[in-house]
C-alpha cells in the first residue's frame, strides 16, 4: 500500500509540470538526477571492482585488463585542468578506434552486401512481384535522395522526389509505432494510479489543480 501511495505522490510531482512549472516538479527532477547519478557511480564502481580491482587484489597484474585500467585512469584527467586534460585524448581515441573497428568489421556483411540482394522481381505470385519491385524502387529512390554529391536535376532529381514520397510512407510508419511506444510510458503507471489507495492522492491533486484554475480565473 505504501508503495502505491508513494508512486501516486511521485506521479503527481512529476506530471504537475503538465499544468505549469512548479517547485514540486523541480524537486522530482532533482531527485531523478541524484538517484541516477548514484546508480551510475555505484554500478560503475561495482563493475570496476569485479573486473579490475579483484584480480589486482589477488596479485594478477600482467593482463590486458591492467593496461585498459591504466588507460581508463588516464581518461579521468578529462575532468582536470587544461594542463593535464590533454592526456585523456589517448584513451578516448583508443576507445573510439575500437568502436569504429568493431562497426566496420560488421558493416559490410549485414548492412551493405546483405541489403543489396533482392528477391526475384518476377515471382510466381504477381502481387509478390509488384511488392518486390516497390521495395527495390523505394530503396533506390531513397538512396538517390541522400546523394548530395550531385545536383538533384534530371533523372536523379526525379528519383529524389519519388524517394521523398516513399520516405514519407516510411516515416509515417515509424510515427505510427511511436504512438504505441509513447503511450506505453504512461499507461504502466496509470494502472496503479487510478486504483485505491493511489487514486485518493490523485483526487487531492486534481482538487488542488481545480482550485488553482478557479483562482487564476478570478485574478484575471
Amino acid at each position: 500500500m505504501i508503495e502505491e501511495i508513494l508512486l501516486a505522490v511521485l506521479a503527481v510531482m512529476a506530471w504537475s509540470v503538465l499544468y505549469k512549472q512548479n517547485p514540486l516538479f523541480r524537486v522530482a527532477e532533482s531527485m531523478t538526477v541524484g538517484l541516477t547519478l548514484a546508480f551510475v557511480v555505484y554500478t560503475g564502481i561495482d563493475v570496476l571492482g569485479k573486473r579490475v580491482f579483484a584480480p589486482w587484489s589477488q596479485g594478477v597484474w600482467l593482463t590486458p585488463t591492467t593496461v585498459a585500467a591504466l588507460l581508463g585512469f588516464m581518461s579521468w584527467t578529462r575532468l582536470g585542468p587544461r594542463s593535464i586534460s590533454w592526456i585523456s585524448r589517448w584513451p578516448l581515441a583508443c576507445l573510439a578506434g575500437i568502436g569504429t573497428g568493431l562497426a566496420v568489421k560488421g558493416v559490410v556483411g549485414p548492412q551493405i552486401l546483405g541489403q543489396l540482394t533482392t528477391k526475384s522481381l518476377i515471382a510466381s505470385d504477381p502481387l509478390t512481384s509488384v511488392n518486390n519491385v516497390i521495395i527495390v524502387a523505394a530503396t533506390v529512390t531513397t538512396l538517390c535522395y541522400f546523394t548530395f554529391s550531385y545536383r538533384h536535376t534530371g533523372v536523379l532529381g526525379a528519383s529524389a522526389r519519388v524517394g521523398r514520397v516513399f520516405m514519407m510512407l516510411g516515416f509515417g510508419a515509424t510515427l505510427g509505432g511511436f504512438v504505441m511506444t509513447a503511450m506505453g510510458y504512461l499507461i504502466g503507471h496509470m494502472f496503479v494510479v487510478v486504483k485505491p489507495p493511489a487514486v485518493y492522492v490523485v483526487a487531492v491533486a486534481l482538487a488542488v489543480l481545480g482550485a488553482d484554475v478557479i483562482r487564476s480565473r478570478r485574478i484575471m
Binding site: 562497426a103 511488392n131 524502387a137
Partner: peptide
C-alpha cells in the same frame, strides 16, 4: 503491407546509407 513493403525499401536505403557513412568515417 505499408510496414513490409514501402517502409522496408526506405529503411533499407537508410541502412545502406548509414553503412556507407561508417565506411567513409573509416
Amino acid at each position: 503491407w505499408l510496414k513490409d513493403v514501402p517502409n522496408t525499401g526506405v529503411m533499407r536505403g537508410v541502412v545502406i546509407g548509414v553503412a556507407i557513412g561508417v565506411l567513409a568515417t573509416f
